[in-house]
Amino acid sequence: MPTPETSGATTLTPAEFTARLRALSPRYWDRHPFHLRLHEGRLGKHELQLWAANRWYYQQAIPRKDAAILANCPDVEVRRVWRERIVWHDGGGPGDDRPGEGGVENWLRLAEAVGLTREEVLDERHVLPGVRFAVDAYVTFARTRPWVEAVASGLTEMFSRGLMARRLVDMREHYPWIAEEGFAYFTARLEVVADEGKSTVDIVVRNCRTREQQEAAVAALAFKCDVLRAVLDAVDYYS
């Protein structure tokens, strides 16, 4: 339903709308105190393990979130683009050159590289209640909100490339005991995140045709930023 703030309001131009979305960058989790300590080399092994195990819970939820978007999206062209994201995270099927290789698998390798066993990550024994609540809320959002809002929530991609590039440099410098294969997630993600971010912006701008839809998209992105920070809040509290 239209709100008093959006009812009858002028639709933003694509440039204005995009600027509103990008203006949320200060809410992204790159400025979180836990991430600052991570990049400064001030985390101990236990803290890195707790972070890796809980971040894995978020990573494994992403393809389920994307599957929810596919289920709700009536636009075949968007579905064709979006289904590739599930493959990137889950890996290919038996007929592909690298079956099972994907972002989730690469994050498991990072968890192993910081000293966790695959079993203890997969059985979720280290997943904190706050992390589980925030991540599950994100998947529920994607399932229950209009598909374009769920797509807009993923626009944190706009802010992530610089963070990942810096993370590779800082972690290699400050945590040299982590084997190089543990960084496979970040090296692979850097190759796709810039293009994905632009594609997502284009989809959101094209499909938000009213001011109400635009404001809902901005709110969706703000919600996703809050989800990410809630994940780190929980890890920071228990580390």
Rank of each mutant, 00 (worst) to 15 (best):
C73Y: 12
C73E: 12
P74Y: 10
D75L: 15
V76G: 15
E77Q: 15
E77D: 15
R79H: 12
R79I: 00
R83H: 11
I86M: 10
H89I: 05
G91W: 03
G92V: 00
G93F: 00
G95S: 03
G95A: 08
D96Q: 06
D96I: 10
D96P: 02
R98E: 14
P99T: 00
P99E: 05
P99I: 00
G100M: 05
G100C: 05
E101T: 01
G102F: 03
G103N: 03
G103S: 06
E105R: 11
E105Q: 10
N106I: 11
W107V: 12
R109M: 12
L110I: 01
L110E: 01
A111W: 08
E112P: 14
E112W: 04
E112L: 08
A113Y: 05
A113H: 04
G115S: 13
L116C: 02
R118N: 13
E120Q: 05
V121L: 04
V121F: 04
V121M: 04
L122N: 14
D123Q: 10
D123I: 06
R125G: 06
H126W: 15
L128N: 01
P129L: 09
V131P: 02
V131H: 03
R132T: 08
A134Q: 03
D136P: 03
D136N: 05
A137I: 12
V139Q: 09
V139D: 08
T140P: 06
T140W: 07
A142I: 00
R143K: 03
T144N: 05
R145K: 03
P146T: 00
W147L: 01
W147F: 01
V148A: 05
E149F: 06
A152C: 01
S153N: 01
S153I: 02
S153R: 01
T156H: 09
E157L: 01
F159G: 02
F159W: 04
S160H: 05
S160W: 03
G162L: 02
L163P: 10
A165W: 07
A165M: 10
R166K: 11
R166W: 10
R166Y: 11
R167C: 02
V169G: 05
D170V: 15
D170M: 13
R172L: 12
R172G: 15
E173Y: 13
H174P: 13
H174W: 15
H174V: 13
Y175L: 08
P176K: 13
P176S: 14
P176N: 15
W177P: 14
W177D: 15
W177E: 15
W177S: 14
